[in-house]
């Protein structure tokens, strides 16, 4: 039973991958764009902080470079999601296609998303190795295997939390079909950009604000994983972080379950 269910979602991911590489040229252009973006950011920051002894907000040169590079990587994994169009599918009534089949809509998108991320990751690995060999930038390499393990684990939970965010904001379309994009923009773009650590490392904020923010789910999307990688978290901070993060994961999952059930009751399966 479990095996069959696993197989079901494995097949969803596989089909999704086939779809993604159905247009090879698009795919290659997307990778090229990624590399150029990485190069631009790298050169920009490299020249901004050329003095290796300079310390900025408690970050040394190699750590700043690693943080900035890490943001691009973690962000590409956590803050990009295939389930971006759930709101559209609800508003257009395309959700019906899934509801009439024995498949869980949330896990359906999650499988597609993970498949896409695996593809992304394998290419990033190749590109990253090449760039590194050619440019030899000053990077901070975490050698503690536990930190690396916790880093991967926190990215994984971050992906789940962000997907839950997307589904919850998309649920608005059950009641207000035209509001889907607005809700998404407000929550997932504005708030997340500010408070997930994408624009700046959150530890440059005043302590009092940091204390509040640490109890929100947002820093756990990008900032927290990167801090683990950089080894800047004490054991206490690490434990507290994971407790708060996993609490949010559970709370958001329950909330989504609740609101989704309510939404389906008013769902009109439009489009026909």
């Amino acid at each position: 039973m479990v095996r069959l269910t696993m197989y079901k979602y494995f097949q969803v991911g596989k089909t999704s991958l086939k779809q993604e590489i159905a247009y090879p040229i698009n795919f290659v252009m997307w990778r090229v764009r990624n590399i150029i973006q990485i190069l631009l950011v790298l050169f920009l920051w490299d020249s901004l902080i050329s003095d290796p002894r300079k310390v900025l907000f408690g970050y040394s040169r190699d750590m700043i470079l690693t943080y900035i590079f890490g943001i691009m990587l973690v962000r590409a994994f956590v803050l990009s999601s295939k389930s971006m169009d759930v709101a559209g599918e609800v508003a257009r009534g395309e959700l019906s296609n899934y509801l009439i089949r024995p498949v869980n809509y949330f896990f359906y998108w999650l499988s597609r998303d993970f498949a896409s991320k695996v593809l992304n990751l394998s290419f990033v690995f190749v590109e990253f190795s090449l760039l590194f060999l050619i440019l030899r930038p000053d990077f901070f390499f975490q050698t503690n295997i536990f930190y690396i393990g916790f880093f991967i684990f926190s990215v994984f939970i971050g992906i789940l939390i962000y997907t839950l965010f997307l589904f919850i904001t998309s649920s608005v379309t059950f009641w207000m079909p035209e509001m889907g994009w607005g809700a998404h923009f407000l929550l997932n773009v504005v708030l997340v950009e500010f408070l997930s650590g994408v624009l700046f490392p959150l530890d440059i904020l005043p302590q009092a604000i940091q204390k509040v923010i640490n109890f929100l789910p947002l820093p756990y999307l990008v900032y927290f994983p990167l801090q683990i990688y950089l080894g800047k978290q004490s054991t206490y901070e690490l434990v507290r972080g994971f407790v708060v993060e996993i609490f949010w994961l559970g709370a958001l999952a329950l909330f989504l379950n609740f609101i989704w059930k309510k939404g389906l009751k008013v769902y009109e399966s439009q489009g026909r």
Partner: peptide, 25 residues
Amino acid sequence: MGQKNQLWWDLPAIDTLELNRAIYE
């Protein structure tokens, strides 16, 4: 529904059918 489709647009039909094989076990 005559105007709603479940086939994956860019893939051959066999891929959708194989997916349904897994979904319906």
